[in-house]
Simulated assay, not measured.
Amino acid sequence: MSENELSELGPVDFLVVEFPAGQQSFTGEIAEELVSLVESGTIRVIDVVILTKDENGDVDAVELSDTGELGALLQIEAELAELLAADDVIHLANAMDPGSVAGVLVYENLWAAPFASAARRAGGQLIANGRIPIQAIIASLEADEALATTGA
């Protein structure tokens, strides 16, 4: 990428979605939703890695482009940059449970690119960001509801 293209990049995030052993039911819906996000211009896929961790803790990492049948993902496969290094994969796999499969997605937030570029032009730099897991939001709402119900 040229320096000009890099200055126009939106924030780049990653996420890891784990599918525990016995709870994996891949129907293609995830791929369809990912393609939809790319087609709508919401995100640009930078890298996708599929991790499998066997019962002994051994990890196998496969780039999306090496999986063979891509189906709906064929449309975004050409944009993959294979950004994750082997050390990154090992670090991410440490969080996985034995017998699980995980998808690692690295993506650019295209929707935020104009704001991020404007902030950089103004001399700003991102110094922190975070994500609140939906489970924490649900727990907080349930706690608030329980408190309101008991009147405490």
Score class of each variant (00 low, 15 high):
Ile134Tyr: 13
Ala118Glu: 12
Ala148Val: 05
Ser2Val: 11
Ser40Arg: 12
Leu80Arg: 13
Gln24Cys: 02
Glu39Thr: 05
Asp88Val: 10
Glu33Trp: 01
Val38His: 05
Leu73His: 03
Ile90Ala: 12
Ser2Gly: 15
Glu29Leu: 08
Gly68Gln: 10
Asp47Pro: 04
Glu79Met: 06
Glu82Thr: 07
Asp144Leu: 14
Lys53Leu: 03
Gly41Ala: 08
Ala112Phe: 08
Gly41Lys: 10
Ala112His: 07
Asp54Gly: 02
Thr52His: 06
Val89Trp: 05
Glu39Leu: 07
Ser65Gly: 14
Gly151Cys: 07
Ala78Trp: 09
Ala143Arg: 11
Ile137Thr: 14
Asp144Lys: 15
Tyr107Asn: 00
Ala128Pro: 03
Thr149Val: 08
Glu82Asn: 15
Met1Trp: 12
Gly68Trp: 11
Ala139Pro: 10
Val16Ser: 02
Arg120Gly: 03
Gly57Pro: 04
Arg121His: 11
Ser65Lys: 14
Met96Leu: 12
Met1Ala: 14
Val35Ala: 07
Ala95Gln: 09
Leu73Asp: 01
Thr150Asn: 09
Ala136Val: 11
Glu5Gly: 12
Phe115Leu: 12
Ala148Pro: 00
Leu126Tyr: 06
Glu32Gly: 07
Gly28Glu: 04
Met1Lys: 06
Val62Thr: 15
Thr52Ile: 09
Pro133Ser: 05
Ile127Gln: 14
Ala122Asp: 07
Val106Asn: 01
Thr150His: 04
Gly22Arg: 05
Ser140His: 15
Ala128Asn: 11
Leu37Pro: 00
Phe19Tyr: 15
Val12Leu: 04
Glu55His: 04
Ala119Phe: 10
His91Pro: 00
Val12Met: 06
Glu142Asp: 15
Glu108Cys: 08
Gly103Arg: 01
Ala93Glu: 07
Pro133Tyr: 01
Leu83Lys: 11
Leu64Tyr: 06
Phe26Met: 10
Ser65Phe: 08
Pro114Gln: 02
Asp97Lys: 14
Ala78Leu: 09
Leu105Gly: 00
Ala116Pro: 00
Ala119Val: 15
Ala78Ser: 15
Gly71Ile: 05
Asp88Thr: 10
Ser100Gln: 08
Tyr107Asp: 00
Lys53Glu: 00
Ile132Tyr: 05
Ala112Asn: 03
Ile90Met: 02
Asp13Ile: 00
Leu51Asn: 02
Leu110Glu: 11
Glu63Trp: 14
Gln125Ser: 14
Glu145His: 08
Ser7Asn: 10
Phe115Ala: 10
Ala146Tyr: 06
Asn4Asp: 15
Ala86Ser: 09
Ala146Met: 10
Ile30Pro: 00
Asn94Tyr: 01
Ile138Thr: 13
Asp87Val: 09
Ala21Val: 03
Gly99Met: 04
Ser7Val: 04
Thr149His: 08
Asp58His: 08
Pro20Gln: 09
Thr150Ala: 13
Gly57Arg: 04
Ala118Pro: 00
Leu80Trp: 02
Asp97Pro: 02
Ala72His: 10
Glu142Arg: 13
Glu18Met: 07
Thr52Val: 12
Ile50Thr: 05
Gly68Asp: 09
Glu32Gln: 13
Asn109Tyr: 01
